[in-house]
Design a protein around this nucleic acid. Structure first.
Length: 422
RNA sequence: GUGGGUGUAGCUCAGGUGGUUAGAGCACCAGAUUGUGGCUCUGGGGGCCGUGGGUUCGAGUCCCAUCAUCCACCCCA
């Protein structure tokens, strides 16, 4: 146990961490372009926030939270998602006093006590955005367009954008009633879960994966059948805006989100080739959430993307994560007498903004060359007896296999002339 | 929470029906007439066989438990 990490967590090692940094760079860039500012909230919150915000009948709250009592006897929970915390910050820090809409993004770890499998971990990472203060359908479309734009920039293809409207407090009771009327005669045939859902949240029966429940529900009334005129207009405008941007989507009348706070627009982005956990992102509108959390009735919408799943999908599609970057220059010494000069020169090269390294393992010249080759050094700078006498160094281009003698004082300039450093 | 697969060297894996010093490839380190990497060749270091019990004269191999991991259900990003 001492040397094993907790189940469902990961070490991100050199070689892997560069991918994360590449993705994080892309996230920050697109957020700047779409007008989003970063917000960082705590990793843990008062448990009550998630009970109220996410919904106490959701699976996340009922069985997946890392909740514990701290030394001050407070119940706190490692955040299982970040919409509720951002809403909390929006209220606590009075961001409603800023010009609206307020557009925020976050990148960070989330925690859910799930059974790990492909694309699912107990500590996983999300990139998400939240927009407060506007119920303009154009914002709904923008949030979806932004997420699709993000995937496009990474080079991901074959992704599907599924869109639906789950109604509002006006029309949802109508839908729930109709659904219960429809399913009541079939109650016995439904799976155990769905029989519970029948009472608690009949909407969720629609996206049950049990084949039998699907068959039974095939002719069930769907969300769009019952939308009030407001919701219906809103949904149509959202779709119109997507079309203005040429964002391909499919309307999925059975799409229901697992968190209670969604109203109106709900969407999900699916990658078909990463296994069973195929959802790489999802989100929707949550016009009631700010109020649920004790604030004024302020509308909101957002999305969250799973970073591990994005990496999985990119690897499946053989996509590049940008240049890794490594050592440019390696200093090789032929004898002990050159060691001092190597230290001096190494510092000068690095100070000039060029990545450089030397041997620290007392290797032979030959072994140093080998190591430099494996480290991917573009150049080696060789200092030996002859060089010391002449006050020069041999600068070898490892790619070309050519080398030339350069005065010690000129090595840095010479390397710069080769295009190194910036 | 449920089901199935897998745990042997740093990595990927071999190790018929239990039998003596547990192997390979890759990686690592060193050398191939002593100042030069990639290719090749030679040699070397490395293994509580996941862990704990049990059966047996004897367990990497069989049994039980446990932990980890992978995949699926479920759920979701």
């Amino acid at each position: 146990m001492l040397t094993t990490r907790p189940r469902g967590t990961n070490d991100i090692l050199p070689g892997e961490v560069e991918k994360w940094r590449y993705l994080e760079d892309q996230m920050r860039r697109i957020c700047r372009e779409y007008g989003y500012s970063e917000i960082r909230t705590p990793i843990f919150e008062h448990t009550e926030l998630f009970l109220r915000g996410v919904g106490d009948t959701t699976d996340i709250v009922e069985k997946e939270m890392y909740t514990f009592i701290d030394r001050g006897n407070r119940s706190v929970t490692l955040r299982p998602e970040n919409t509720a915390p951002v809403v909390r910050a929006y209220l606590e820090d009075k961001l409603y006093a800023l010009p609206q809409p307020v557009k925020l993004y976050y990148i960070g770890p989330m925690f859910r006590y799930d059974r790990p499998q492909a694309g699912r971990f107990r500590q996983f990472h999300q990139f998400g955005v939240e927009v407060f203060g506007s119920d303009d359908p154009a914002i709904d479309a923008e949030v979806m367009a932004m997420s699709m734009d993000f995937y496009r920039r990474l080079g991901l293809h074959n992704l599907e954008l599924h869109v639906n409207s789950v109604g509002c407090p006006q029309c949802r009771p109508v839908l729930i009633q109709k659904l219960q009327e429809y399913f009541r005669p079939h109650l016995e045939e439904l799976c155990k879960n769905c029989r519970e859902r029948f009472e608690k949240n009949p909407l969720r029966i629609l996206d049950c994966k049990e084949p039998r429940c699907g068959d039974i529900g095939i002719a069930a009334p769907t969300t769009v059948d019952c939308l009030c005129s407001n919701c219906s207009d809103h949904f149509n405008e959202v779709k119109k805006n997507l079309e203005l941007m040429d964002i391909a989507y499919q309307e999925d009348r059975r799409l229901v989100r697992g968190l209670d706070y969604y109203t109106h627009t709900a969407f999900e982005i699916v990658a078909p080739d990463i296994g069973a956990q195929s959802s790489v992102g999802g989100g929707g509108r949550y016009n009631g959430l700010v109020e649920i959390c004790g604030g004024p009735p302020i509308p909101g919408i957002g999305f969250a993307l799973g970073i591990e799943r994005i990496i999985l999908a990119m690897q499946r599609q053989n996509l590049s994560f940008g240049d890794a970057g490594g050592t440019d220059v390696f200093i090789v010494t032929a004898n002990q007498a050159a060691a001092g000069e190597a230290v001096r020169l190494l510092f000068k090269i690095r100070s000039a903004g060029i990545s450089a390294d030397k041997d620290y393992m007392n290797r032979s010249l030959k072994a140093q060359m080998k190591y430099a080759g494996k480290a991917g050094a573009g150049y080696t700078v060789i200092i030996g007896e002859d060089e010391l006498k002449q006050g020069t160094a041999l600068v070898r281009n490892m790619g070309l296999g050519q080398q030339e003698s350069v005065p010690l004082g000129e090595v840095v300039n010479f390397l710069k002339e080769q295009g190194l450093g910036n």
